[in-house]
Write a protein that binds this DNA or RNA. Sequence first.
RNA 1: GGCCCCAUCGUCUAUCGGUCAGGACGCGACCCUUUCAAGGUCGAGAGACGGGUUCGAUUCCCGUUGGGGCUACCA
Length: 472
Amino acid sequence: MSSPRVRFAPSPTGYLHVGGARTALFNWLYAKRTGGTFILRVEDTDRERSTDEHTRVILEGLEWLGIGWDEGPYFQGAYGERHRADAERLLAQGRAYRCFCTREELDAQRAVSEARKEGFRYDGRCRRRTAADVEAQIAAGVPSTIRLAMPDEELAWDDAVHGRISFQGRDLDDFVILRSDGTPIYNHAVVSDDIAMEITHVIRGDDHISNTPKQIALYRALGRAEPVFAHVPMILGGDGKKLSKRHGATAVGDYQDQGIFPAAMRNFLALLGWSPGDDREIMPEAEMIAAFSLEGIQSKPAVFDAAKLEWMNGQYLSATPAADLLAPVERQLERAGIAVKGQQLLPLIDAVKARSRTILQLAEQVAVRLRGPAALDAKAEALKAKMGESFAANLRRAVAALDPLPEAEWRPEPLLASLKSAAEGAGVKLGDAMQPIRVALTGSTVSEPVNELLAIVGRSASLDRMKAAAER
RNA sequence: GGCCCCAUCGUCUAUCGGUCAGGACGCGACCCUUUCAAGGUCGAGAGACGGGUUCGAUUCCCGUUGGGGCUACCA
């Protein structure tokens, strides 16, 4: 058997969402794993809703994730002629027929069905027209669509994820394959393209399961063998409903903006609905490719857990050398109007790296060390309130203890020694002595060890911030 | 309404008839640090329900319930 050919076929009617990104990832992983070809096809047949901007964002999103394609991007809109020819062929072979029903007639029938709480199905009245009648209608210039004559037979396949799935042709419509303006309907365009592009494995979202029997009918009518289908389950929001904008960030670009690493996003998405079969969590790209299989894909939908994504990103962040973080941190600092650049940032990055989960958080922490806290966070406020008078008193004592230290002695070890002896002398717990300093320097109750923090912030800025906080 | 898919800790998952039902996120505690939401250790926490099949069911079958998808001259 020749090597697999798979495709990701987004429609540019919106941004690249995490569900689409994961579908693309699974296709890509499968191609990499099997030495196959990954094809990108933009399904822009919905002229009204498709935009170049969306296409651009989708392509950029895939590139950002490191999902490169071997062929394409092809644009479905460019193949209108083949779509039409395929429909005409079906028409000529009697596997499809012209329908002269108007939209208004159809809508009226649908309204009646719905009022009776029944599902609407096209009754196939035009299928029974005589050849002479059809000729007459055409001659009279009545517009028509082309509908597939759905066979009354079983339409089943062995889904690579779900196992055998079976539909009955009689439950399905004679659906339209070519509009009256000569453009193709989705299911027809997909099959025509998948045949032309020799797609062997269709890996796509679960929501296409009910499209599959229609497409199988089309493959049969067109006299072609169908590909392997693998329907991957959907991604849900925390409320168990299909993930959508009201669940917060759902576009891949949102996570890029939040400072998530592409590698972390890829790792997280891969494990959402797929498992290597063992306990591995952090998986390098090569390992994911080596372990990937369609059988490892889960059949139930998965809830998108942003907290786990952040944890995973934190793992990648901790493992990344400060030097590699310099450029993105500089970019964030510049945005915040901080001009500091270069090597001098490295110690700051190292100081806060382990406690940050995204580049954004990391850059914020670096910024705070550089120019001081804008305000206290909730926990810092609570701590200050709880400590009352002793908050300022402890700060004043710290200032008195540290002020005599010359610039050359402003290093972690001497700082710790001074702080300890001052606390001991006053009979305060070291924690009570340290936390106010942490809050004064960062506005937060969390940071690297305080003596290191003082060294990072520097002598004069540290003393200034402590004095200011003591007076406030 | 019809057709179809799905069902293990709160969440992501392992288990391919016999397991103390394992791991991860999150949560809690403890340890480390005479200072942090880092690190380490431990803990709480699951087979939707009812029938079968079987010596034995989370695992296979059926039903119920509960989710979800599709049901356009959208994709």
